[in-house]
């Protein structure tokens, strides 16, 4: 079983869209996939039309009093299950603070038999929860906008990993919400691609199909499979999958 986290401390970078669409692509390729919506806003759960509610809330999960197995919901897609968000997740930081660093990693261990891939959709913050997530993951995938500010946050993430002494975690970046007509986007992408270590070349374009996810409440690959973003997510998944092996 592999574990990947879709993360950026900055909000509005297309994080949830990435988590939803990558999970969908992974499931379509035959991997038994579980996506855990850790963001109390519950956008991922909304996209999959699942109520953002978990019996017993985050407290019981962290304490190990809930069997994760009983909380999982099947999505409308083959091979793809969801562990929904819950408003109580806003306190997850405090809950995990009382636990060992590897608590989350331990919680997901029993799921190994059932799933080939776990995807964490992470809240946009840098905190106790983030470091728990990083320790439980094989790969950290950071969506970035092609802007200077967005790229700067990457240095902060690297610093955090170093300070927390988190090793063996692959860090991968890619650009999302790319507007090909903007010269600045083009320049930044070119410059970054040349020197960015661990950067994946597949870009996700800024497109109306991605915005429509909120209306369709489905991954783009489902309702607009032949559009540019759907194909880009597929390509992005292919590259990530290659690096996971």
């Amino acid at each position: 079983m592999k574990v990947i986290s879709i993360y950026n401390m900055k909000g509005g970078v297309g994080k949830t869209a990435t988590a939803v669409n990558l999970s969908y692509q992974a499931a379509q390729s035959g991997l038994r996939t579980l996506i855990w919506d850790l963001d109390p806003q519950g956008a991922t759960s909304f996209y999959f039309r699942v109520k953002p509610k978990v019996k017993g809330g985050g407290k019981k999960i962290v304490k190990g009093k809930s069997d994760l197995d009983d909380l999982i919901k099947g999505t409308d897609y083959t091979n793809l299950d969801l562990l929904p968000a819950d408003f109580s997740y806003r306190d997850l930081d405090l809950r995990f603070a009382d636990e060992k660093d590897s608590r989350l990693k331990k919680l997901i261990t029993p799921l190994k038999k059932e799933y080939d891939l776990i995807v964490f959709d992470c809240p946009p913050s840098i905190s106790e929860l983030s470091q728990q997530i990083f320790r439980a993951s094989d790969m950290l995938i950071v969506p970035m906008l092609p802007t200077t500010l967005s790229i700067r946050t990457l240095d902060q993430i690297r610093l955090f990993l170093k300070e927390e002494k988190i090793k063996g975690l692959k860090l991968r970046t890619f650009f999302s919400m790319v507007d090909r007509r903007k010269k600045m986007h083009k320049d930044i992408i070119e410059e970054f691609a040349a020197k960015g270590k661990g950067h994946i070349e597949a870009n996700i374009p800024y497109a109306s199909a991605v915005e429509k996810m909120g209306i369709e409440r489905a991954p783009v690959g489902d309702f607009a499979p032949r559009t540019a973003p759907a194909l880009s997510y597929r390509e992005l998944w292919r590259e990530i999958n290659k690096e996971l092996d």
Partner: peptide, 10 residues
């Protein structure tokens, strides 16, 4: 065929 709830979830 799929039977769905009010949210449209199967």
């Amino acid at each position: 065929m799929a039977v769905r709830d009010k949210e449209g979830k199967a």
